[in-house]
Amino acid sequence: MNNHEIDYHLHGDDMQFVEIELDPMETVIAEAGSLMMMEDHIRMETIFGDGSKNSNLSGFVGKLIGAGKRVITGESLFMTAFTNEGTGKKHVSFASPYPGKIVPLDLSELGGKIICQKDSFLAAAKGVSIGVEFQRKLGAGFFGGEGFIMQKIEGDGMAFVHAGGTIHQKELEVGETLRVDTGCLVAMTGQVDYNIEFVGGIKTALFGGEGVFFATLRGPGTVWIQSLPFSRLASRVFAALPEKGGSKGEGSVASGLFDIFGGDRN
């Protein structure tokens, strides 16, 4: 393997974290701020880019290009590398930034390439390359809910992505098509054909409540779908804030009537 071979264990159900076991001198890379805990003799180092061999081929220029790709996807210029410098096995754990699931992806069994939402990457074995995947059809990019820029994870090691709610993994046969809300798409294998299509019908567009575009995925390949995108959760929380017109009560019928008629509870 070109990437470090790491072992892992997932803990929890709806608020998961992943515990990664590192042999001496093994390294895992992760998004800045995702660390939960780590044992002694693990060295933490901030790196420029993703630390893969591809980003080091041309020295500083290669690292700069790798970091630039991360900026395009909305991520930080830097990542954090955790290396076991002890003599025995050590453990480091990473947590999801919001309620949901962590999806382990063995790239060696998935064709060496995964395309995922631009903010879903959590951690990976050292040597895994994190880049960008441009949607071939620009119309899909400009009008699709997730934009035409997605993350591309390549290599032959383990990678971990996170998503909201429940995760559904679906295998698509050759030519099989699946239509998905753009925000619910988490990841897909590299051979899946991906496009954004317009939802026909002006009534659907204006009153359907589901948006006017959806992702069309065509097999063969594997796709991962989330039941609660963070954007959907955040919009509901934002809409419920009192200063944005949300209810100030506890959700009872009585409190709703007070809100409607402007009653004073004091």
Rank of each mutant, 00 (worst) to 15 (best):
S55F: 01
L10I: 10
R70F: 01
L35M: 13
K113V: 11
V132W: 04
T27I: 06
Y98L: 12
P229A: 02
E243D: 14
K89I: 01
S93R: 06
R265D: 05
G190E: 08
K137A: 13
L257T: 10
L57G: 02
I47M: 01
R236K: 14
I29W: 05
E133T: 03
Y98W: 12
E243G: 14
I65Y: 13
S96D: 05
A254R: 12
L57K: 11
F238T: 05
D23A: 15
L206K: 09
G88R: 09
A81Q: 08
D7M: 06
G111N: 06
K118S: 05
F48V: 05
E26P: 01
I115K: 08
A125W: 09
T80N: 15
D23P: 04
S235Q: 06
I115W: 09
F134P: 07
Y8H: 06
F207Q: 06
G221K: 04
F230M: 13
G209A: 07
G66Y: 03
I115C: 09
Q16W: 05
V61K: 15
F198Q: 08
I47H: 03
I115F: 10
Y8Q: 01
G111L: 02
G175T: 04
P104I: 08
L57M: 07
G100E: 01
Q191G: 15
K126D: 14
A163G: 08
I167E: 00
H168V: 10
L233C: 03
K244G: 14
A240F: 07
D181I: 02
N3H: 00
D40F: 05
P229R: 00
A123W: 12
Q169F: 01
Q191L: 15
P220V: 01
E197L: 03
M15P: 02
V71Y: 15
P229L: 01
S58Q: 15
G175M: 04
H168K: 11
S247V: 06
D7L: 08
V212K: 15
I225H: 02
G249Y: 03
V161S: 04
S108E: 10
S108P: 08
P99D: 05
G175Y: 06
N2R: 14
D14P: 07
P229W: 00
I114T: 05
E133F: 08
K101M: 06
M15C: 02
D13F: 12
L10Y: 01
S255Q: 05
E154T: 10
E85W: 07
Q226N: 03
K152E: 10
E26V: 00
L138K: 07
L217M: 02
D119H: 15
G183I: 09
K113C: 12
I72G: 04
V237S: 09
T87F: 12
L35K: 11
E75S: 05
P104H: 09
Q151D: 07
D7Q: 12
E85H: 06
D40N: 05
V103Q: 06
E197C: 09
F94R: 09
L77C: 11
A32Y: 12
